[in-house]
């Protein structure tokens, strides 16, 4: 908030004419009311099997070891027997995406811890618990995985993720806890609709 206020004040004092931005924590508009002409727009699609596999590697820097085995179940066509790419978000797809996410995310965080790959833990270490660092890393991960750029630390979109990273029923979070929590964040991002569609 302090930094945001500083930026807002700076913009205001420079006389650029922009109204001061106030953090907007209202939930996004999911179902706009009124008529929306969608006839000339692009339709959202699910990642193909190959796109998912490639993107998972770019996002986590890890390859899913079982991809070839399950590529057909994810929808990859062979054009001998199956002539169109599968695009359904089916139970099978969801299950396999979670399997892939768990394997690659656990490996990615482990690689960050053991070899300082800085893929998932780029702006934090397992020892960090303070909000600015957690938010900075979440901001980076949102961009890396979802192509979503968030400026404010207190943006409502961070809330559930911060809860995951900061809450424990009893006692304090250990470094081992944090390693699992960051892996869980990674899994959450890989299985997020914004990752699986475009």
């Amino acid at each position: 908030m302090k930094r945001y206020g500083f930026f807002g004040m700076l913009v205001f004092t420079m006389g650029c004419g922009e109204p001061e931005k106030v953090p907007d924590n209202t939930p996004p508009l999911v179902e706009p009311s009124g008529f929306v002409d969608t006839s000339s727009q692009r339709r959202v699609r699910r990642l193909s099997a190959e796109q998912f596999h490639n993107s998972l590697q770019v996002a986590t820097n890890q390859a899913w070891s079982k991809y070839e085995r399950f590529a057909a179940a994810l929808g990859r066509a062979d054009f001998g027997e199956t002539t169109s790419e599968g695009g359904d978000i089916s139970v099978t797809f969801d299950k396999l995406v979670h399997d892939a996410a768990r394997e690659t995310c656990l490996a990615a965080v482990e690689a960050d811890v053991q070899m300082a790959d800085n893929v998932i833990l780029r702006h934090v270490s397992l020892a960090d618990r303070d909000l600015p660092k957690l938010s900075a890393n979440l901001r980076y991960l949102f961009l890396r995985f979802l192509a979503v750029q968030i400026d404010a630390d207190d943006d409502a979109r961070f809330s559930p993720w911060l809860t995951l990273l900061q809450t424990k029923a009893d006692g304090e979070l250990s470094d081992n806890d944090m390693q699992m929590r960051w892996a869980a964040v990674c899994v959450g991002l890989v299985t997020h609709p914004d990752f699986l569609t475009y």
Partner: peptide, 10 residues
């Protein structure tokens, strides 16, 4: 602006 929009609908 850099901030991504908060829109889920069309």
């Amino acid at each position: 602006l850099a901030d991504s929009p908060r829109v889920c609908g069309p």
